[in-house]
Structures are given as C-alpha cells and as structure tokens.
Nucleic acid binder design. Structure first.
Lengths: 344, 344
DNA sequence: CTGTTAGCGCCTTCAG
DNA sequence: CTGAAGGCGCTAACAG
C-alpha cells in the first residue's frame, strides 16, 4: 500500500461527497448518525489519516512551534525543551528544534526557515547581539517568546530567571566565605543580557560590600572546560591572585577547578569556586560544586504557558509578559570552608 | 503588517501572473532576465517568504523528519539529536522532536502525530515491546530508521552500537580485575533489544570464563539513581554478595556507587562498578566511573546519513541497512584496583 | 518567454 | 441532512 488515502477515496467508496466525509469525521452535527458511523468505520478500515499539512495550509495554523537554542545537548537546554514539549503536546502542538551553535548568522537562517515553515510561534534563547532581525518575525505576526537568553523588546514576552540576582547571590556568598579578591568569568558577550546581568550582580555585590571592582578580574570566555583552565592561567599571572571565582558557566567552572587542582591549590581553602546552571555533574563530581539553579524544565513549561495564554487572549494581541523566575543558590563543597557533612 | 504576502500579491503589483513569479523565484530558465530581476526586487521589498506548507502539500514532501526518543534531556539523546540536526540541516530538513517517556502508548501517539504531519521519515529509539505498530509507518511508505533502541524488522534500517559486545567487554573487564561474583543491573525490559543484548554479552562473558550465571545476580531497574541504590540493597541481602557490578545505565551505576559508599564499601577494592553510556558526569564525579562509550553524536549523524542514502537511492526502495557501531570500553577508577595516576 | 488551468487534501459557505 | 463550488499558496503541464 503506497498511496495515502484521502477523504475523496473514502467518499468514493461510500458514494457520498468529500464534504460529507469531512463532516462525519469532524464532529459536525449536521449529519445523520448512520452515515457518521459508516464513514468512521470505512475510514478506519482504509487506514485513513488526516493530512495536517492540508489543514495547516487551509487554516493558516501549522500547530508547530519553532524552538531555537544554542545547542541541544546540555542538560539545561535539553530540560527546557522537555518542559516545553510536555506542556505543549497536550494542546496538539509539536516542536521543531533548531540549533544556532552560538552563531548569529545561523540563528538568522533558523529564523528564516521557521518563518517559511509557518510555525505558530518561535521560542528562542538567542545568541545574537543585536535584535533588529527579530522584527522580521514580529512583522509576520508570529509570536516570539524569549527564554533564558532574552532581548528586551516591546511586544515580546520572555521567561528568564533573575540573572542579576543570581550573580549577586553567588558573589555575596563568596564574600561571606571570606573571599576578598573575587574574579568573574563571563561565558558570553555582555551584549547578551544574561551575561550582562550576571556581571552587574557581581559588580553590585562587590560594591555593596566595600570591595573594589577590578577590570583585570573579569575575563570573557566561551563556555567550555578548556577556557576555564585558560582563564585560571590568566588570573594567576596577576600580582594579586584571586581567592574566589564566580563563573557564569558550570562548564567553565569545572575547568577552573581542574586547573586550580593541577596547580596544587586547595578548594575552597585557597580559592572558592562557584558556577551557574546546576548542571547535574556539579553535584556528582569529585569536589561537588556550588552553583545557581535555574530550574530549566519549569522555564520551558512557563514559556509554553505564556504562549498558550497569548494565543487564547481575546484578539490575540501582542502582550509582552516578562516572567522572571527566582534563581536558587546551591551551596556545595567548592565554596564552604567549614567542611560539610561528607557527601553521598 | 499582518497579512503574509504571496506570489499573487507580487504578481498583481507587477501585472504578471503568479506562474511567472513562481518561475522567476525558482531559477526556472524560461524567463527573461529583466522580469526575473524585477520580480526578485519586488519580492524582497514586499518581504515575501515562500510558504513551505503549500509547497509540502503540493509536492507531498514536508522536509520534516520526526524523531522519537524516550526523553530529550540526557546527554546521550541530546547528542544524538544534535548529530542528526547537524547532518540534516544542510539538506533542508528540519526535525520534529517527540518524547515517549518510555511509555508504549505515548510512543504510539507520537507515531500517529508524525504520520499526520506528513514527515518524510521517522527516526526512533523505541520504548515498545512489540513491533506491530510500526507497520503503520511502513504501510504509509514512510521510511523508518531505528537508532540505539531498535527492533529487528525487515525493510527497516537501524544504527546501533554492538550492545552484545559492549556487555561482553564490560563484564570481561570486571573479570580481568579479579571479580568472580558479578551482578548485572538491566535498566530496561529485555524485550528492548539493547538491554537483551547487553545481558547476553554479560552472560556469555561469564560462561567463557568459567563463571556460573546466576539469576539472583540479575536485577531489573528503571534508569534512575534511586533504583541503583535499591538494587544494591537487594544484592547485598544475598548470602554471596557480589564483588563486581555491571550496570546498563550510568545513572543506575551512580546510584550503586553512592549506596556502596554509604555502606562503607570501598570501590573498586571491595566492589568494582561499571556503567554504560559515558554520560559526562561519569568522568567528573568523585570517583570517576568506568563505562562504555556509545558515540551518540556520531550515531545521530549516521542515522541521518542512512536516511539520505535511502531517499537518494534509485526508486527509493526500502533498503534495510543495519549499521553497527563499535562501542569502546572506558576504564576509570571505579574498576581499576591498581590506582591510576591521580586524575585531573 | 508568459498566461491559463488544474490540483495537492481539506474545510466551509451556500444551495438544495 | 447532503452536494456543489471555491480557496488556502504553490507548481507543473499545456498552450500560445
């Protein structure tokens, strides 16, 4: 059996018209119980499936949501997507995944593709520095919702955690542990708001506690273990070496820990280290790592909910709801000098 | 601007017909250079985007691939999907993600949905015990390709690692370390081939080395840390407690390690532990864990390649190519009694 | 080189 | 209650 069966096929068999079949299959009330049953049975026996593509073309609604993330194989983004999927599936939506690979051009291509695919909305954790390209989406009247890496734009909703507060909490925690020379590793460009905000939180926490902000303590990296190691090399070439490091990425923080150990430094006694994201490995590794939890799965669910609310709102106006989740400080052995109860 | 612009809109502006516009935009040669330019310019100025939905309906080809996985937020499945995406994107395909949550019914629903969406193929890591439902896919003439958790079916390609050999290698390694009472934790039903095969490899390795296979040493779990702990409790209630544990899941193995430690047992001196999948945390954790690498990203790429080959084959016959990748034994501290050089 | 026509599969008026 | 006709956006013959 090769050809897919359409409502015409089953109409022909029953000597009725396609309209009748359509009505029977869609719960239209203007139809006799007898023919409805008949249609349903033959449809089943002929292994009929509605063609959603035709439906989508007709209705202008594809029931697909495009999701753009830098990459999909981290626990964070995987979990966000899981949250989105779980929340949206019951409403009949499907999600199309695109990876930007942290590349602005690729992200733009992804947007083009998704628009062409007639997605009903785009959820995005952006890697772009400017936001002009997003107007293409809005001009097409496609709802755009940012999660995690957002841009501030009117008419666009977003779901994020309070990154400023996360940066502040992490830094204050280091100060409370007695650190006075605290470095910050920014795992992305400050044009991306989350990295900007985490840095601002860091800076403000220093100021509020009478500690000077020093440019040489702020290093930009990419989010990788190796760049964490390189950053340590750079920091420890300074005259005044840091005694605390706040990294905006768990992966970078892991590299930091590895490099510090290689240099024979004790953690947290000599240097305290805290990351960001609560990736699972932070809890399992040799030295469990303090970090900031972002609740990715819930972030995904919230993103989906914001969308559902928006399309169900009367007139489907472009509301811009800014949902800000509270991050949570997770304290583990990489920052606590008084030994915690042995883990595990 | 709300309404999306179609080729009719731009045809009207230029006083030509839609067919001309279509030709101009698609590199058809039967058209004058002048009108082509004109069309292209006005198309651009009107912010025109081709509607892929219409194209898909017309051509019967959606350029979408459905991918079904148990869950998306593990490194393994995330990486497979990344591999698929990276390989397929350049060919203009997009992927639609579905999660089965390890539930046969949900998986069936996913299949139905994907068929209705007119996907050009379905890639699946199945959670189903029987394979009858997959005939729906084939009867619709939709290519089906399994990866990782496959079913053996004629006319269906698959990309897997050699799980039998992985189980064999893991078990033999434990034996070589001097273990004689080796338990196996199967993190899934034997009706799913990978778990069956890993167990068979385990069994054969025992036999080949003159060790009796004992049913009480084989425990079925779900893939979670807590069930790993529970399994240890069960095993250590036996009279002859195991001195080696091969788990078919890294997560379960992690639970095993945690529980063994809680009981004051030394790893690997008292009990050696090996997992399966090479999830990143296995390398970072307190006691680095031996495991089997499955090369998930490459598995994704291969799956995509098998599909591309298939659709490019003359006549697009249903070939069933069975690609079997070689797993790799990763030896770390959880099994090596002679201390390795201090890691990190 | 360009216009006309038909149709992909479905739904939705409008008649009967 | 059911049939006929039109259209969603696009392409592919077939004419001219």
């Amino acid at each position: 059996m090769v050809k897919k069966t359409t409502i015409y096929d089953i109409a022909k068999v029953l000597n009725v018209t396609a309209a009748t079949v359509s009505r029977a299959l869609n719960g239209n009330k203007n139809i006799s119980e007898a023919t409805r049953k008949l249609v349903e049975e033959t449809a089943a026996s002929m292994n009929y499936r509605p063609n959603k593509l035709a439906l989508a073309l007709k209705s202008g609604k594809s029931n697909n949501i495009g999701v753009i993330v830098p990459r999909i194989n981290t626990n964070f983004f995987g979990s966000v997507i899981r949250g989105i999927e779980d929340e949206l599936n019951p409403s009949g939506y499907h999600i199309i995944i695109c990876q930007s690979h942290n590349d602005e051009t690729k992200e733009l291509n992804n947007i083009e593709s998704l628009i062409n695919l007639q997605v009903d909305a785009i959820f995005m954790s952006t890697s772009s520095k400017n936001s002009k390209q997003f107007e293409k989406i809005l001009s097409k009247n496609i709802p755009l919702i940012f999660f995690d890496r957002k841009k501030t734009m009117s008419g666009v909703s977003s779901v994020t955690i309070d990154d400023y507060s996360g940066g502040y909490m992490a830094t204050r925690h280091l100060i409370e542990q007695g650190c006075t020379r605290i470095a910050h590793l920014a795992s992305g460009d400050f044009a991306i708001e989350i990295f900007h905000d985490r840095h601002e939180g860091y800076r403000q926490a220093l100021i509020d506690n009478g500690i000077d902000y020093r440019e040489e303590y702020v290093i930009h990296t990419r989010s990788s273990i190796s760049e964490g190691k390189a950053a340590v090399t750079e920091l420890f070439a300074l005259d005044e070496k840091p005694d605390g490091i706040f990294s905006s990425s768990d992966f970078v923080a892991l590299g930091v820990i590895q490099e510090l150990k290689a240099r024979g430094l004790r953690i947290p006694e000599d240097v305290s280290v805290i990351g960001f994201a609560n990736e699972p490995f932070t809890d399992f590794q040799e030295l469990s790592m303090s970090t900031i939890d972002q609740f990715p799965e819930q972030m995904g669910r919230l993103t989906a909910k914001v969308f559902l609310e928006q399309i169900e709102s009367p007139g489907m106006v472009q509301i811009d709801k800014k949902v800000v989740m509270k991050p949570e400080l997770i304290i583990r052995n990489s920052t606590i000098k008084k030994k915690l109860a042995e883990k595990i």
